[in-house]
Design a protein around this nucleic acid. Structure first.
Length: 451
RNA sequence: UCCCCGGUAGCUCAAUUGGUAGAGCGGCGGACUGUUAAUCCGUAGGUUCGAGGUUCAAGCCCUCGCCGGGGAGCCA
C-alpha cells in the first residue's frame, strides 16, 4: 500500500514522534473495569461482520477482545480497521467491561479510537498448524504466540525460583568461566575457539571451578550457559543450554540428596503458585506437579536394575540407563526419583567411590516423572589427593591440566558435594513439552544456529 | 557416527499401479451488527529440494548430493 493510500484510509493516522505510553496491560485489565484505558499491542486476530469489528489484541501479558461497532469510532477509523492484519501494531482506547462472550480474558474493550502504527504484511505464522522446521526458522516471530509466551513465563519463574532458593539458603552466586583451557570431564565433545595464539573451549560444566569457590565460601552456585558439541539429535538435547550448579563444602551424598529434594520442591511449588494460567494455556495438567513433595524415592542403581528387569527390560548389572530405561523406571513412581550409587566405571573421574563398595560411585541422578528423564546429576567429589590422581590417570586425562584442581586436595581438603540442574529439561517437564527446543528463546541444536 | 522417515503454492497437506499438479488455511477483492481458528462469494498464487538416469510419458521408479524431522550412543 502506498503511503498516500494508507493515509487516505486511516481516520486518525499515527504521527511519528507522538508518544503514547500504555496505561494498562491486559494481564491486569480487571483493575480497570468500567474505566477508559489505552492499550498498546499487536493484532492477534481480527474478525468483522461488516458493521462491527472484533479485534483480538495481545500485548504479551494477555489477549483481550476489542469491539468496534460502526458508531463507536469515527467513520475513518472504522474503515481503516478493515486494513488491519495479524500482528499489525496498534494503540487502542476504549472502555473496559466484563463480557462472558469474549474469549481469553473475560473482559472486553468497547473501542473509542484506534491508532495504527504499522500494517504487518503477510505475517508468515497463521493461526493454522505449522511444522517444527518452519516454526524454528521463524523463531523470532513464533515467540509471539500465546503458547511460547506461556513457556517463557514459566521459564522466567523457574530461573527466579532457582536464584531465590539458593539465595535464601545461604549460597553465594559465584559464576564460573565460559572459556576453559581443557575438558572438565573428558567425556563430552567441546566447542573449540581461537583464543589469540592458542585454543580455548566453551565450558561444559562449571563444577571444577565451583569446587574451588566452595573451598573459599562454603556454599556456592554458578548459573549460566553450558555448551556440548555432541552430535545428539534427541528431544532432550541442545548444544547450548543453561545449567545451575551448586557445590557445598562438608556435604556428603546424603546431604546433597536432601538439597536436591528441597530445591526441586521449591521450584515446582513456585511454578504452581505463579503460573497456573500459563499451565492452562499449555494444557499441562497440574496434578502430576502437585505430587512433587518430599520424600522422593531413593533407590540404588542396583535396585533400579532389579526394577527394570521386573518390568521386562534386558540390562547388564553395570550399565548406565538409556532414555527407554529412564522412562520405564520413572513411570513406576508418581514423583521424581533419586537413583544413587551408579557403577563407578560409567561416571566421571572426580566422583568419590563408595567406601562400602569401591565399584560404586557416590553419585545421584534425579529422574523427573512422566518420562522426562534426568534433570539433575550430581554427587560427592573425591577429596583424597592420591585417589584422585590415580583416577585422572585411569581415565587417560592429562594430569598437568588439573594441577590447580589437585591443589584443592593439597590445601585443606574436605568432603564436598554438588549437583547440576538443566534448566531446559526442567522447563520441558513442568510445561509438559515434548521437546526442549521450545524451552529456550533461541535454541541451538546440531543442525541449527539461526535465527 | 549409525538407523528410520520426509522435502509438492506463503503454511499444512493430497495427487489411484508412472498418464492434464489440487484442497484447506493465509493473501487480495467483495458481502455480512456478537464474531469465537467466524462464515459466504470471487480471485491470484507452482523450477514438485538439486544434478543425472530409466521411459512414449516421472511429483511418483533408480543413483548421487543437499536440507530437515525422529531415534540410538552420550548427556543436563
Amino acid at each position: 500500500m502506498t503511503a498516500a493510500r494508507f493515509r487516505a484510509k486511516i481516520g486518525r493516522p499515527y504521527e511519528r514522534g507522538e508518544h503514547v505510553k500504555p496505561e494498562a496491560r491486559i494481564g491486569e485489565i480487571a483493575k480497570f473495569e468500567g474505566k477508559e484505558v489505552t492499550l498498546c499491542g499487536w493484532v492477534y486476530n481480527i474478525r468483522s461482520s461488516g458493521k462491527i469489528h472484533f479485534l483480538l489484541l495481545r500485548d504479551g501479558s494477555g489477549v483481550i477482545q476489542c469491539v468496534a461497532g460502526a458508531k463507536d469510532v469515527s467513520p475513518g477509523t472504522f474503515e481503516a480497521m478493515k486494513s488491519l492484519t495479524q500482528e499489525s501494531s496498534v494503540i487502542v482506547t476504549g472502555s473496559v467491561r466484563a463480557e462472558k462472550r469474549a474469549p481469553h480474558c473475560g473482559f472486553e474493550l468497547t473501542l473509542k479510537d484506534v491508532k495504527i502504527l504499522q500494517i504487518a504484511k503477510d505475517y508468515p505464522i497463521s493461526p493454522k498448524e505449522h511444522g517444527p522446521a518452519f516454526l524454528l526458522d521463524n523463531r523470532h516471530l513464533w515467540l509471539r504466540s500465546l503458547r511460547q509466551v506461556a513457556i517463557m513465563k514459566v521459564r522466567n519463574t523457574i530461573i527466579r525460583a532457582i536464584r531465590d532458593f539458593f539465595d535464601q539458603n545461604g549460597f553465594l552466586l559465584i559464576d564460573s568461566p565460559i572459556f576453559t583451557p581443557a575438558a572438565c570431564e573428558g567425556t563430552s565433545t567441546l566447542f573449540e575457539t581461537n583464543y589469540f595464539e592458542t585454543k580455548a573451549y566453551l565450558t561444559q560444566s562449571g563444577q571444577l571451578y565451583n569446587e574451588a569457590t566452595a573451598m573459599a565460601f562454603g556454599k556456592v552456585y554458578c548459573f549460566g550457559p553450558t555448551f556440548r558439541a555432541e552430535k545428539s539429535k534427541t528431544r532432550r538435547h541442545l548444544t547450548e543450554f543453561w545449567m545451575v550448579e551448586p557445590e557445598m563444602a562438608f556435604y556428603d551424598l546424603g546431604d546433597t540428596m536432601d538439597v536436591c529434594e528441597d530445591f526441586l520442591c521449591f521450584v515446582v511449588s513456585r511454578v504452581l503458585e505463579r503460573n497456573r494460567a500459563d499451565l492452562d494455556v499449555l494444557e499441562r495438567p497440574a496434578g502430576p506437579l502437585e505430587n512433587v513433595r518430599k520424600p522422593f524415592p531413593r533407590i540404588t542403581h542396583a535396585e533400579a536394575i532389579a526394577v527394570l528387569r521386573k518390568a521386562g527390560a534386558e540390562i547388564a548389572d553395570n550399565a548406565d540407563f538409556g532414555g527407554d530405561e529412564e522412562t520405564i523406571l520413572t513411570k513406576q513412581f508418581d514423583r521424581p526419583i533419586m537413583v544413587h550409587r551408579y557403577p563407578a566405571e560409567v561416571k566421571a573421574f572426580y566422583m568419590k567411590g563408595d567406601p562400602a563398595d569401591r565399584s560404586k560411585a557416590l553419585c545421584v541422578d534425579v529422574l523427573a516423572p512422566e518420562g522426562y528423564g534426568e534433570v539433575i546429576g550430581g554427587g560427592q567429589r573425591e577429596d583424597d589427593l592420591d585417589t584422585l590422581v590415580a583416577a585422572i590417570k585411569k581415565h587417560g586425562l592429562p594430569e598437568e591440566a588439573f594441577t590447580w584442581y589437585l591443589d584443592l586436595r593439597r590445601y585443606g581438603s574436605v568432603p564436598h558435594s554438588g549437583f547440576g540442574l538443566g534448566v531446559e529439561r526442567t522447563v520441558a517437564w513442568l510445561c509438559g513439552l515434548h521437546h526442549v527446543r521450545e524451552t529456550i528463546p533461541f535454541p541451538r541444536m546440531m543442525e541449527r544456529v539461526t535465527p
